[in-house]
């Protein structure tokens, strides 16, 4: 059962009938096949724990996985923080549901491990309590959003998301 659940989780709610069948088939045939061979062409999943190779007072360094996946299609699960501004073209994906700036009475102060998501097409807000899965191209490097001045280092662009 645990073998079966893996492909389902990875594909989220966008399972096609073919993928489902593939998943079932792969699970049934697992002893004979290299794991995940059916997904060689699919977007690679990356988690919040895998973003940084080292974390320190003098800065963070990106992980090898981030460096390898730079420019490629990725999927990532997380929570959608409420948009900074209604007109913002992006939202912030966080590891845990965010209480925005819990300690200060003015501007936002974000945790280190966030990923900024630029959507390909407008989508409605997903409740902050609900896990989502984002798919899009991973961008690495400092970028200042021209509309809001928000500086980000990791982005998923051309993205779409679904409930995870």
């Amino acid at each position: 059962m645990s073998q079966l659940s893996t492909p389902f989780q990875r594909s989220g709610s966008r399972l096609t009938r073919r993928e489902m069948l593939l998943g079932l088939w792969a699970a049934a045939a697992l002893p004979l096949l290299p794991p995940r061979s059916s997904y060689a062409a699919a977007a690679a999943e990356i988690t919040f724990d895998e973003l940084y190779g080292s974390v320190g007072v003098l800065g963070l360094t990106f992980s090898d996985k981030v460096k390898q996946l730079k420019g490629s299609e990725v999927t990532m699960k997380g929570f959608m923080a409420p948009p900074l501004k209604a007109e913002a073209a992006f939202f912030v994906l966080t590891e845990i549901p965010m209480a925005l700036c819990p300690f200060c009475s003015s501007d936002a102060d974000w945790p280190d491990n966030i990923v900024v998501v630029y959507l390909d097409a407008a989508q409605t807000f997903e409740q902050a309590n609900r896990l989502i899965e984002v798919t899009g191209r991973l961008e690495v490097g400092s970028w200042t959003d021209p509309e809001t001045g928000f500086v980000s280092l990791l982005r998923i662009v051309g993205a779409s998301f679904d409930a995870a």
């Binding site: 409420p82 845990i96 965010m98 209480a99 819990p102 807000f125 409740q127 309590n129």
Partner: peptide, 17 residues
């Protein structure tokens, strides 16, 4: 503890965790 989290209306709701 993270008692509340924000929804799309910028309102804080109880953290269901």
């Amino acid at each position: 503890f993270v008692p509340a989290i924000q929804n799309e209306k910028k309102e804080y709701v109880a953290n269901e965790a």
